[in-house]
Design a protein around this nucleic acid. Structure first.
Lengths: 163, 163
DNA sequence: CCATCATAGTGAGTATGCTCAGCTTCCATG
DNA sequence: CATGGAAGCTGAGCATACTCACTATGATGG
């Protein structure tokens, strides 16, 4: 797991920057996940719980998927696990029998609150060393990368440029 | 898949920076993967092929895993798929019957060369808009995050600090 | 020589992500 | 009302990552 820096120098790609992005994200995620798992949460589960908690009203699967930013099928899997653990409930939509309405259970809301606290603590540990200006720098750089990828993948006709 | 920015503003965590890092990485990876898959490669496979190609000598599974930066079990899975596709070969170590020695086949070497070209092109598209100074900025910021995570996860006694 | 511990690799199982196919249901149009 | 296409969700299957447990082998000490 340590990924010896010397090894990376020997074997890294010519543009190690992207590799660094991948590796950093993977480790950060593992770090946060580790903290959250002690309380039955995880990054993916928390993202889903968060959207449900902040929406304030029951959501359809597809809306949940869109807000979280995952493919619908991925949301099905995550909701399956959350429902299995009693954190969310699927109820048939009263007027559209294709759809479900998803709500947090009480335990789901409790789990969400606890997970948010753990998440904040973990993120503070991971990025707390960065100053406000540095955070803005990082945010801007990530935005530039996203824009480049979106343009190049989604068609050069001017994709969504959120900044 | 679009993850509406307005939705993120409504539902994002209090520290959207880390979410941005996750989302950016996921999209960048999907972007590069898409390019590579047209030629039988992928990010994970290319990383493995790259190490084998640059090592210049047969590698044990555990060394390969360490150089690539994955858990040994993950390397087993990836090597399984590469071997299935005829890109690498497992040969029993002559003096340690527990171990395998992994080598690229000719097709593996060819696949690696092609994938590297696609990779370079994709990375140029994704990060080409960044100037040299910005790349250094990003690299430094990622390094700071990794250092914070490593210290906080690996024990505060001074983990490996690669910079 | 053999008991014991360590190492190498993988099987089993899980989590998170995806696509494609398929079913059910809705809706618009004739 | 019927019909065809669109929409909502999930089954099937894959890729990438992990941990834990296990087998087989190596190495070491009595």
């Amino acid at each position: 797991m340590a990924e010896d820096p010397a090894a990376r120098q020997r074997f890294g790609s010519s543009d190690a920057l992207v590799d660094e992005l991948f590796v950093t994200t993977q480790r950060l995620r593992a770090f946060v996940d580790g903290r959250l798992r002690e309380h039955g949460a995880s990054v993916a589960r928390l993202r889903t719980l968060r959207v449900l908690a902040l929406a304030g009203e029951p959501l359809r699967m597809r809306d949940l998927a869109e807000y979280v930013g995952n493919a619908p099928r991925t949301t099905t899997t995550i909701v399956d696990s959350l429902e299995r653990d009693g954190l969310v409930e699927r109820v048939r939509h009263p007027s559209d029998r294709r759809a479900f309405l998803l709500t947090l259970t009480e335990e789901g809301a409790r789990c969400h609150r606890e997970a948010e606290e753990l998440d904040r603590a973990a993120l503070a540990a991971a990025t707390g060393a960065l100053s406000g200006a540095e955070r803005e720098q990082l945010r801007a750089l990530l935005g530039r990368i996203r824009a480049a990828v979106d343009v190049d993948a989604g068609g050069a006709g001017g994709a969504d440029e959120d900044d």
